[in-house]
């Protein structure tokens, strides 16, 4: 464990807590893409298949359970909770995310570490996580002004993977056989997709103005 990875995990945890705070505090999920939440739930379920078979550390197991439970509870909340589901921007959240799932599944069948069930789902989860934010970014552009908690949620979600890239660079130079090209490339694509969001987020922070994404 290195500081970059720990900071990345904590940033990821913060993004989940900010989203939970927004939903429970405001009893609203306006501005949040249900499709991105569903994709993330799928990412965690596909990636943590080894939750019960490989014990790595208490930290690792606890964090996996937290990410799986939180993503499933957010999806459940946005679909079932009577108050929350009413505020869902159903008509704006129209990204056809099933294509993302199909594309990533195909990609994982073609490019993976080893042709085993767990490895293919691991690669699938990395490709899917790289594009999972797309429905959310499209929704932000369509919904005009973004409330603070939603903006912070997306910011921390993007920042966590950027920290993981530093972690991979660090591990590349400190561990001899560290070849994780699939996660490095997926992580770079994922962080790049946040590029313009980070730019407008920085501008809004600098000018102390509301976050506005150009349509």
């Amino acid at each position: 464990m290195n500081i970059f990875r720990f900071a990345g995990d904590m940033t990821h945890l913060i993004s989940v807590l900010v989203l939970l705070l927004k939903i429970y505090a405001t009893k609203s999920c306006s501005g949040i893409s249900l499709k991105t939440q569903e994709l993330y739930a799928l990412v965690f379920l596909a990636r943590y298949l080894d939750l019960f078979t490989d014990f790595i550390s208490v930290y690792n197991t606890v964090m996996k359970i937290v990410f799986i439970m939180s993503s499933l509870s957010i999806v459940w909340c946005m679909r079932m909770h009577p108050m929350v589901r009413r505020s869902y921007d159903k008509e704006l959240d129209t990204f056809r995310h099933y294509f993302l799932i199909a594309g990533c599944l195909l990609g994982a069948l073609l490019v993976h570490e080893k042709f085993t069930f767990q490895e293919i789902f691991w690669a699938f989860s990395l490709y899917l996580e790289a594009v999972a934010i797309l429905p959310q970014l499209v929704l932000l552009q369509r919904s005009g002004n973004v409330d603070n908690l939603t903006g912070q949620y997306v910011f921390f979600l993007g920042a966590y993977r950027a920290l993981y890239i530093l972690n991979w660079i660090y591990r590349y130079f400190t561990e001899k056989h560290f070849g994780r090209w699939i996660s490095c490339i997926s992580g770079l694509v994922q962080t790049a997709l946040y590029g313009d969001f980070f730019y407008y987020y920085f501008i809004s922070w600098k000018n102390n103005a509301k976050l506005q994404l150009p349509a």
Binding site: M1, R5, D9, H12, D50, D54, I56, S57, N60, M63, K64, F67, W122, Y164, N167, E175, H177, F178, G179, R180, S183
Partner: peptide, 10 residues
């Protein structure tokens, strides 16, 4: 070994 070397990440 390389197997578990990188599966320790979340």
């Amino acid at each position: 070994d390389s197997e578990s070397a990188y599966k320790d990440e979340l």
